[in-house]
Write a protein that binds this DNA or RNA. Structure first.
Length: 493
RNA sequence: GGUUCCGUGGCCGAGUGGCUAGGCACUGGUCUGCAAAACCAGCUACAGCGGUUCGAAUCCGCUCGGAACCUCCA
């Protein structure tokens, strides 16, 4: 049998070219994917979580297709400047100073928070999760190489990438974002402390630390810290090679971060790193980008437990994930209570059908075209990871399942295949989870419920509606919903 | 000001030249002691104005509205 990725070749929208292309891995059967991770100086907000959930879904699908995927997602724990001038301060160091903590305490706290949230959202851990501080040596080496090749200069102990010279030598700074350097300089903000740079568009590879700066490492140029853009170049090269397949990140990193990464890669080894660039779009709240300064923000933990003035209730992480998956990763997704509520219902319908499917019997012949449906599902996923279309196909199957009384219009082998594929689609690829309580239902509980249901059935036989309704209402209050059907009563959480 | 992108039915959200996703909500019906669920049916839209075309939500132009980025951003 053909491998799935050969049967359903993946096409992805490459931000570098602005068009969809066939994914052809550098090494057949393997995918190297790098995603820019979070800067761990505060709790991840929901927008961050969306980006990582999007790439988790992509990782899951590529793996499902049979690719051997090495997924590298870094933790930025140093080198992320507040601004690029002399007053530039490392984000981690700033937070540490404000909270009077050791920088690595900040890093530890928010790394743990990040992992916890991503786990709740059922995101798989990446294959490698390297940290910037763990790769200072590599970053220094890369800086040396770029200086040696003539595209960086030392200024007062700091090292800057020389964008003008790089482009004059045939570099293509601006290729990703479509920006032209001349325009950039005209439009750029006036920043303090730019005098170390020859040119405003130059960016730091290494920054000399001020006497009070608390994160510092020795280097040939000064005691200091690496520039933000450099870590991703250094770590992606180290773990995925000079040429690898996919580089992902939030849309807001396209410029300057990813633009700088490409320039650094080419300046180091004449190769631009990733073949395909993917950008996950922003999550907006009330039509605006989330921002801590304006209060237009929500933390995943608040969303899960409902502890926010913006929410009427909490939502299960799997519902949140389903909500995100109903939009394409490359589209802006607007967040609202109503949208979440709708997603919750849809999620419930999906899970109910999944549970029903497992209890259905097969038929003597298949009158539902399983293969055609499978093709549609895979084609939608392979078409630039189109999760919304994919989910719409899922609901076609759900309709068929719900139309089935006790028998599904499929022979046993088809029923087995459908069950296996639904399992893979819902849980392995979309990464959804059945309600924890629902999945933990034990035999004992089943027996107890059977008893309660039969008692209620008796009451109903005797037209003792009062007793029947008390049982149903009390169970409902306890979170157990009874459903009277033609073939008896079932329950769910 | 520059770059990129978007404006789809009550809401969310796909589609990107013809065959008009899907979810949620709503209305009617089936089922049912009632309810819930499910099923059936209905509601059927593409910001506005022009243009190209046999045909445009989809391509082009303009107008209006919104978003992201332009060295903190996922």
């Amino acid at each position: 049998m053909d491998l799935l990725y050969k049967q359903y070749p993946v096409h992805i929208e490459n931000s570098l070219l602005g068009k969809k292309e066939l994914l052809i891995p550098v090494v057949e059967g393997r995918i190297g994917m790098y995603v820019c991770g979070p800067t761990v100086y505060s709790n991840v907000h929901l927008g961050n979580a969306r980006t990582f959930t999007s790439f988790d879904f992509i990782f899951r699908y590529l793996s499902h297709l049979g690719y051997k995927v090495r997924y590298v997602r870094n933790i930025t724990d140093a080198g992320h400047l507040e601004n690029d001038g002399d007053e530039g301060e490392d984000k981690i160091a700033k937070k540490a100073r404000l909270e009077e903590l050791e920088p690595m305490e900040i890093v530890q706290r928010y790394t743990v928070d990040f992992h916890k949230i991503m786990q709740q959202l059922n995101a798989l851990p990446p294959s490698i999760e390297p940290t910037a501080t763990g790769h200072i040596v590599e970053q220094i080496e890369m800086t040396k190489t770029i200086i040696d090749r003539g595209w960086a200069y030392v200024s007062n102990g700091s090292v800057y990438f020389d964008v003008d010279t790089y482009n004059r030598d045939g570099g293509d700074y601006g290729i990703l974002s479509g920006r032209k350097i001349d325009e950039l300089q005209e439009g750029s903000r006036v920043l303090e402390g730019q005098e170390e740079k020859r040119n405003p568009s130059d960016f730091a590879l290494w920054k000399k630390a001020s006497p009070t700066h608390i994160m510092r490492w020795p280097s040939p140029w000064s005691v200091g810290f690496p520039g933000w853009h450099l870590e991703c170049s250094a770590m992606s090269t180290k773990y995925l090679g000079e040429e690898f397949d996919i580089h992902g990140g939030g849309m807001d990193l396209k410029f300057p971060h990813h633009e700088c990464e490409i320039a650094q890669n080419i300046a180091t080894n004449s190769k631009k790193g990733a073949k395909y660039w993917l950008h996950a779009n922003m999550l907006t709240l009330n039509g605006k980008r989330m921002s801590k300064s304006t209060g237009n923000t929500i933390l995943p933990s608040e969303l899960f437990n409902g502890d926010s003035p913006l929410l009427i209730k909490g939502f299960n992480p799997s519902v949140v994930r389903f909500f995100m998956m109903q939009a394409h990763y490359s589209s802006v997704l607007d967040f609202s209570n109503d949208a979440l509520l709708a997603a919750e219902k849809g999620h419930q319908k999906l899970m109910s059908a999944w549970i029903k499917l497992k209890g259905l019997a097969s038929s003597k012949e298949s009158t539902w075209n399983l293969q055609a449906w499978l093709d549609k599902c895979y084609l939608s996923l392979s078409d630039n990871f189109n999760s919304p279309i994919f989910i719409s196909h899922l609901f076609e199957a759900i309709k068929m399942i719900n139309q089935s009384e006790n028998q599904i219009p499929l022979v046993q082998s088809d029923l087995d295949l459908l069950t296996q594929k639904m399992d893979a689609f819902i849980f392995d690829i979309l990464g959804l989870q059945v309600d924890e309580q629902g999945s933990s239902q034990s035999d004992a509980l089943d027996k107890a419920m059977d008893l309660v249901i039969s008692l209620r059935a008796k009451a109903r036989e005797n037209k003792d509606w009062k007793t029947a309704d008390i049982i149903r209402d009390e169970l409902a209050a306890a979170g157990i919903k009874l459903k009277d059907g033609a073939n008896g009563t079932s329950y769910e959480f």
